[in-house]
Amino acid sequence: MTLKISSLEVGYGKRQVVKGANLTVEKGELIGLLGSNGSGKSTLIKTIAGINSQTKGTITWNGDIDLSRLARKDLAKIVAYVPQSIGLSFGLDIREAVLLGRTPYFGTRPRDEDWAHVDAAMERMGLDELGDRAVTELSGGQGQRVLIARALAQDPEILLLDEPTSALDIRYQWQTLEVARDVTRKNNVAAVIAIHDLNQAARFTDRVVFLQDGVVIAEGRPAEVYSPELIKRVYGVDVELSTHKGFVQVHPLSEQGHAQLGLHPIASEPARAHRLAGQREYATA
């Protein structure tokens, strides 16, 4: 089963943001969308999720399902979207926040089946002991897990993550990315994640796609596609590349470039992240 995006064009008013993007994602594959701010990553993800409308092109699933023509509820049963942050106005408890993922499936009253999906998604994300806690009391990492649990409760075949790590500190970034990769494999979904950090993308995604001014300019396995020339072209930063435990790493040649790419020191983090991912952290509030 394949998510296929062909010649996609999306704009806001007269401004075109995505200009003829092509992309394929297989089930069980996590694709990293890379590019500088304003390159069209979020717009592309939101268009696949049905939040934005495309002006041209097609988005198909499994060859014959045109996602842009599906009714909103039917689309929500195939595609789940995880935003940057939980951003809640009122203190809904975690179980009900995850239940929102079942919105496309029930009318006014959730059925036993809906609760079973909620319980399974919460258990899957390690939230089952925090069910009655208000989401406003959660840490950033826990909040992100609630959002992913909500997406899992949707029972999707396509999972879209829109810069889910951008509001998190390094510990929760790693944890969230591990979860995203794990869910992609075990739930066998086609997943796309917009991400800023090139080293994290290399570590966690199967393939990366570079967007520049709304156009896909390169795609492939990180080790194959990363090059100093490409990174200079996309981000305007001079870098060197190395390999650590089989993963390509990017090293900016200047401190300014380091800040510009927002990279985290990758060499020391994986072990720590693995340790942290095995723990359940609780809110300090």
Partner: peptide, 15 residues
Amino acid sequence: NAIAFAGDDSAKSLG
């Protein structure tokens, strides 16, 4: 619930 607690974009993605 979806609009109030998930926001416009997420509510759209929830159908």
